[in-house]
Design a protein around this nucleic acid. Structure first.
Lengths: 230, 230
DNA sequence: TGCAAAAGCTGATAATTATCATAGTATTAC
DNA sequence: GTAATACTATGATAATTATCAGCTTTTGCA
């Protein structure tokens, strides 16, 4: 079985492409290109015109937006199965976010036409994309509330739990996705030094353990309580 | 002309209902009910199961979410032409937000079925809804960045500019939409006292003028600079 | 391998923001 | 009209967070 064909790609199960018909899928697969992206390399930049969407086969990308004060706010982490850039393609706007790989990645680039054709002709597909976007919007609402109502300490605790739940742990009990301290700060929207300080504090209190830049969760219960404000 | 019919409703121009066919519109119009909601009254609550969507004919509603610390974070202000609750109906989830009128309102309630039927059959409509949601998602991203990277002062300045641009001014030069100090605080995600203090400061500096709870913009240029961080 | 650059860490201090207390001012209900 | 209630306002203080500076460790790469 040719796994490089969309028809056989497992990743598709997790995104809206599963609503495509066999013929559509064939068309998509014929038009797509696969590329590998090294950790730290950009997939696309804020303000860039996207000529298609990126489907993540492997690895993780951060989606971020530059703020006026020069800091990058990470809005989302996209993992295996997620499609990036569809918002911009649908709204026919330039991208409002930058995408940079935070681990080595393998992605498929699907040209805009393949997507828009199906959007206009296959209501099931459109509805499926719509459902995904509705879900993203809800998550964004939650992030807004967390950002404005929780302390940095709570947000960092929550970020660690999020990383565990979404990307899992490695054999040694560390979070499988290792982010730099700066990236962690940019996820929760704080200064790098503040993030580092709180990570040190968590370590002292026995909530986490670290090894280099790797972080492992030691006391999930307490982290949860902290994130909830107790 | 019967303006109570969706077919003749001007408001429809501004939302995704404009993509409906004549027959669909007739169906929607036959099934809808109109109600008036007094300022301060709720339309629906967070966690409630919505059996349809609300289309705003007049007035403004705040969409908010209760945070763990008991504060209401206002995520969006919905004005004439906007449809509320579609996210929950599409995702088939309970509402993640509460809606409360911040001015006297006139809204149409459209039962879920009328919407979902068209979503499944009319790709143009689905696509139109999708485009609107893509736009909402972009706005949510922007809010996330503002919340996490801007100071309270900047966010309040920005809120005033937003209110002016979206709801306009009255004959005396005050913002047409008057929010309580508490609502302003809940829009920018800060304590009511902090918001009041900053409003006083803006007044002293001649950026705005007030009369009771009404606020008027005096120096838009400076407010803009402030919001941008200068 | 070694060295320059980047990332991580900590302290001191300043700025921002929240909280608590208290009082004045509007609004509303009776 | 007046009492009750909600909203606005301001001061004092505490808590949180950012910034700047200096140092150590890790990483990348010539």
């Amino acid at each position: 079985m040719d796994r490089s064909r969309c028809e056989n790609c497992i990743v598709r199960q997790f995104n809206s492409l599963r609503a495509l018909s066999k013929e559509e899928l064939k068309r998509v697969s014929d038009s797509k290109t696969t590329k590998t992206v090294k950790k730290g390399q950009p997939l696309f930049e804020e303000g860039e015109k996207l000529n298609g969407v990126y489907c993540v086969r492997n690895g993780v990308s951060k989606l971020s937006k530059l703020s006026a004060n020069g800091k990058d706010q990470i809005v989302k982490l996209a993992a295996k199965g997620e499609v990036m850039g569809q918002r911009s393609v649908i709204a026919e706007e330039h991208s409002n976010l930058s995408a940079v790989a935070v681990s080595d990645m393998e992605v498929c680039f699907i040209p805009k036409d393949s997507i828009t054709t199906s959007l206009q002709k296959n209501p099931n597909f459109t509805l499926e994309v719509l459902r995904h976007m509705a879900h993203d919007l809800k998550e964004a609402d939650d992030v807004i509330v967390n950002m404005s109502q929780k302390t940095v300490k709570q947000r960092i605790a929550e970020a660690f739990l999020y990383l565990k739940n979404n990307f899992g742990e490695d054999a040694e009990g560390f979070l499988a996705l290792t982010l730099s301290r700066e990236d962690i700060a940019n996820v929760v929207g704080t200064a790098t030094e503040s993030a580092i300080r709180i990570i040190s504090e968590f370590k002292k209190k026995g909530l986490i353990h670290t090894s280099g830049k790797r972080i492992g969760i030691k006391d999930e219960r307490k982290l949860k309580d902290l994130a909830e404000g107790f």
